[in-house]
Design a protein around this nucleic acid. Structure first.
Length: 575
DNA sequence: GAGTTTGAAACT
DNA sequence: CAGTTTCAAACTC
């Protein structure tokens, strides 16, 4: 096997940080190494989809880094001395030394990384950082593995460790080798995948490439070019999680991690994480943890960037490799609504619904009150009776009156169609909470519908509350039933409206991306799926939930979120 | 932690 | 190209 490759631990160990002269001096390697290729074939196959996915994912990304991506040459220039530089234009795997300090890449979590440098000619600087602010993204999208190595000399927090015993870490069996990283701190034995054995390693790389030019390409997902052939045939957009080569799982049903398929594709969350992760779960697991943020799109590249410029590391190097065919696009699929609905939004929605419910109750109470007055005039007896048994309503009315005293509430009510404008300011969050508390305090019985919805709620609070409710006279129950029905109606209506808006946003995004891709696809380096990356946040950002809630809600209270992410993307929703 | 299973890589 | 072997991760116990 690697027998010849073994140069006995001997090869002249190139100085750790010194560039590997051999690389440059050696005849260019003929084979392409794609492993580092972050691009994805994206646009080639299903542009619309790619665009949409990319666009959506972008929303999650604070910013795209691609601007001014260093040209391969430039990039090489910045390679750390210690990192063997694969000079071959075609893209020898750039070894990412664990020793190298990992520079967090601003890369979007899921996204589409479009490393193409040319994109912004205006920014020739080798280490251009998008002027626009590239949020310092602490975490690199890369798979955990890479991240773990951050410490240069420091204690590597955690790292991936291969356990190779017989391959000398010079075969693709070795996770480190396959991913273009030096073994560092691994549990391997007789390891040649290190700076000291650079010569042997290079030979191994050459041999590997000779066997399979795509050997270093990610097997799954991230590399669009991975299988050019396959892609062509499939005409598919290699989304994250897509196996470039196609796995050959027989017994695992592709549900195990032996082939990554399960991890990258089948598993939802993981699917969005790093596509390029190798099949090993070590790479993957971490990504899962950060899937949301780090799109992990790619495995970590330890290529240090001077200037701290985030780079995709090896990526640029690969660019030259696939220039014509595809721009290096990495497409990671994300649901269109992925970035629209945030966890906090659910909370906001709940608040909103609570407010709506409270408003409905108040409105109902007010209405009832008026009716009662009319009745009183017509029937004094009826009025007496009401006074005797209408305790709960009385309190409700009382609340209403107090609320009416509040100008803010009045204003709010006017704006609230759902309540018929009867009640004014229901909208504040505090108020909503208040209403909620009142309900609980009053032991308000739950309507049948509510009970049905809570059928699985075992919360003692709810149950207790309900059980405590004393039986009330028929008339009151009837009123309450009506009240609850009204509340439910309002709540459901509001919820429906919210969903409609959400759907609308999703469609808008889809359309937008589709259009963008059509017009921009020409693969502008800075564009992912037709979406301009840098400006993206402003131009393409989709209204976030907040927006969605706010716009959908007629209840100000809901809109005011403490979460802050309401304000996230208030701006334009262009189209 | 040891042993087994699995599928990719390497080899014939 | 197909079949076999080797390998190391993934998995099970």
């Amino acid at each position: 096997m690697a027998g010849k490759e073994q140069q006995g631990g001997g090869g002249p160990p190139p100085p750790p940080r010194a560039p590997v002269p051999a690389a440059s001096s050696q005849p260019p390697i003929k084979k392409l190494v794609r492993q580092l290729d972050f691009t994805s074939a994206a646009l080639a196959g299903n542009p619309a989809m790619a665009a949409a996915a990319a666009a959506v994912s972008r929303a999650l990304q604070p910013r795209a880094v691609p601007v001014g991506f260093p040209q391969p040459q430039q990039l090489r220039a910045h390679l750390p001395v210690g990192v063997p530089q694969q000079l071959h234009p075609r893209g020898l795997p750039v070894m990412r030394s664990h020793h190298v300090v990992h520079v967090p890449l601003p890369r979007p979590a899921v996204a589409v990384a479009v490393p193409v440098p040319q994109v912004r000619p205006a920014q020739p600087q080798p280490v251009p950082r998008p002027p626009v602010a590239v949020p310092l993204k602490p975490e690199s999208p890369k798979p955990p593995r890479a991240r773990l190595y951050e410490g240069k000399d420091g204690t590597p927090t955690k790292k991936k460790c291969c356990n190779c015993k017989h391959s000398k870490c010079l075969k693709l069996y070795c996770e480190c080798f396959a991913s273009g990283v030096y073994c560092d701190g691994c549990n391997c034995s007789n390891c040649f995948n290190n700076v000291k054995n650079e010569t042997a390693r290079r030979e191994a790389i050459d041999a590997t490439l000779e066997r399979n030019p795509d050997a270093f390409r990610p097997k799954i997902g991230s590399s669009p070019h991975a299988n050019r052939n396959n892609m062509e045939a499939a005409g598919d957009l290699p989304l994250v999680g897509k196996h470039n080569k196609g796995c050959h799982c027989k017994k695992s049903g592709c549900l195990k991690k032996y082939s990554n398929a399960a991890v990258n594709g089948a598993i939802g969350g993981a699917a969005f994480s790093s596509p390029s992760t190798s099949r090993k779960r070590k790479h993957i697991d971490p990504s899962l943890d950060h899937s949301a943020k780090e799109n992990g799109a790619h495995r970590t590249n330890h290529v240090p960037q001077k200037n701290g410029m985030p780079s995709d590391g090896p990526l640029p190097i690969n660019q030259p490799v696939h220039p014509p065919t595809l721009g290096p696009f990495k497409v990671t699929y994300r649901p269109l609504l992925a970035d629209i609905v945030q966890p906090g939004d659910v909370k906001e929605l709940c608040k909103l619904l609570v407010v709506v419910s409270g408003n409905a109750a108040k409105a109902y109470a007010g209405k009832k009150s008026q009716e009662d007055k009319v009745v009183e005039k017509e029937d004094e007896m009826g009025g007496k009776r009401e006074g005797e048994i209408g305790g709960s309503l009385a309190s409700t009315n009382h609340d209403r009156e107090e609320n009416n005293k509040d100008p803010n509430n009045q204003k709010a009510s006017a704006d609230d169609p759902s309540t018929g404008g009867t009640r004014a300011g229901k909208a504040s969050l505090e108020e909503s909470k208040h209403d909620c508390n009142d309900d609980q305090k009053s032991n308000r019985p739950m309507s049948p519908g509510t009970l049905a919805l809570m059928c699985d709620e075992q919360d003692t609070m709810f149950m207790t509350s309900q059980n405590v409710v004393p039986q009330q006279p028929a008339p009151v129950n009837q009123n309450q039933s009506e009240l609850y029905a009204e509340q439910e109606r309002c709540v459901l209506t509001e919820f429906r409206d919210c969903l409609h808006k959400l759907v609308t946003f999703g469609r808008m995004k889809e359309e937008k991306f589709s259009m963008a891709i059509k017009s921009e696809v020409p693969a502008h380096p800075m564009q992912a799926n037709g979406v301009s990356r840098i400006p993206y946040s402003k131009e393409v950002d989709v209204p976030v939930v907040k927006t969605f809630l706010q716009s959908s809600s007629r209840h100000p209270a809901a809109g005011n979120s403490a979460t802050g992410h309401l304000d996230k993307k208030p701006k334009h929703e262009n189209t």
